[in-house]
Simulated scan of single mutants.
Amino acid sequence: MAMRTLSACCLGLFLATAASAQEAAPNLADPTPAKGWIVTLGGSLQLGPKYDGSSSAGLSFMPSLSWRRVGEKPGFSAPDDSLDYALYETDRFSVGVAGAFRSGRYSGSNNRLFGLRDVPWSVEAGVFAEFWPILDRLRTRVEVRQGFHGHHGVVADLSADWVERFGRFTLSGGPRLALGSASYMRRNFGITLPESLANGYLAAYRPSGGAKSIGLASALEYTWSEQWSTTLFARYDRLISEADRSPLVRTSGQRDQFTVGLGMNYSFQFGN
């Protein structure tokens, strides 16, 4: 009887210990995702053409904003990507909305623009799609955006970037192609007859829609810490087709467009 009582006590002690251990041990299979967001604020200072086809350069500042869930791997973004938000994404494909800001062209910035209408700044809103034919190495992207305020045309940007990571460095770059509708091209490269007569220097010109430029872009990012990173980037565009034939380019500007810039990003955790 004593042996049976001792065995029962040992069994009870074992079950209680096992239950306590199970309660204290973490659930490694817990599917609950990490809480909170990593928000990245940034901006870049750029030196580039004052307007499409300009032969003079000016400084501009472009802000940037992105976010991801805590625990998610940081995604790749080229410096000349528009601000975007993915509505659907997988490891290789994403699609969503995109927006961009385009500075204007003002007659007071160049004597040769006298008599021409100003082209105010524009906000462009639309959609984007990305696809990685080679995961984490080759990215392709297309953006289609509608202009508001300064112009009311449609623009499209197509790009491809090869991405290489070396420790804290990320090197990327590839070809670019820009397209514009007839409304966009006429607003930015066209010259009406009254404008030509008032200017007395530039001939009248009415372009149609199509390809605007082809080019190359590259960027070198260095990650200083989990919070800070900087990016040095450059882009070259060659105006072609209807844009290249514009007197704004041939007579008072240039077809070769260069942009260089330096960006900085700061990341922080938000929420629990």
Score class of each variant (00 low, 15 high):
180 G>D: 02
115 G>Y: 07
178 A>H: 13
110 N>T: 06
178 A>N: 11
111 N>L: 15
181 S>R: 11
7 S>T: 10
117 R>L: 03
33 P>N: 12
230 T>F: 12
149 H>W: 13
228 W>M: 15
91 D>S: 13
259 T>I: 01
56 S>H: 14
144 V>S: 06
246 S>N: 01
23 E>A: 15
135 L>I: 10
60 S>A: 08
110 N>C: 09
86 A>E: 03
89 E>D: 10
24 A>F: 09
130 E>N: 15
112 R>A: 13
256 D>C: 03
206 R>K: 13
249 V>C: 05
111 N>C: 10
158 L>R: 09
112 R>T: 11
246 S>C: 02
243 A>D: 04
34 A>V: 10
105 R>A: 05
92 R>S: 05
251 T>D: 11
213 S>A: 14
107 S>C: 08
186 R>K: 15
86 A>P: 11
259 T>Y: 00
166 F>I: 12
261 G>F: 01
253 G>E: 04
188 N>Y: 06
270 F>N: 03
264 M>S: 11
39 V>Y: 07
253 G>R: 03
255 R>C: 03
122 S>C: 00
210 G>P: 04
249 V>H: 05
163 V>C: 04
238 R>A: 14
253 G>T: 00
200 G>K: 07
82 S>T: 07
148 F>E: 03
27 N>W: 02
103 S>Q: 09
175 P>T: 04
65 L>Q: 07
173 G>V: 07
26 P>T: 03
82 S>P: 12
20 S>I: 10
180 G>S: 01
40 T>P: 06
267 S>C: 01
226 E>I: 07
5 T>E: 15
99 G>A: 15
177 L>M: 09
217 A>C: 06
147 G>Y: 00
17 T>S: 13
168 R>H: 09
133 P>S: 04
99 G>N: 10
91 D>H: 12
5 T>W: 10
153 G>C: 05
207 P>V: 00
224 W>Y: 15
99 G>T: 12
46 Q>V: 13
204 A>F: 03
64 S>E: 03
88 Y>P: 01
253 G>S: 04
13 L>P: 00
213 S>P: 07
231 T>C: 12
14 F>G: 09
71 G>M: 08
218 S>C: 12
10 C>I: 04
4 R>K: 12
140 T>V: 00
142 V>A: 08
198 A>K: 03
118 D>R: 04
4 R>L: 14
127 V>G: 08
9 C>Q: 13
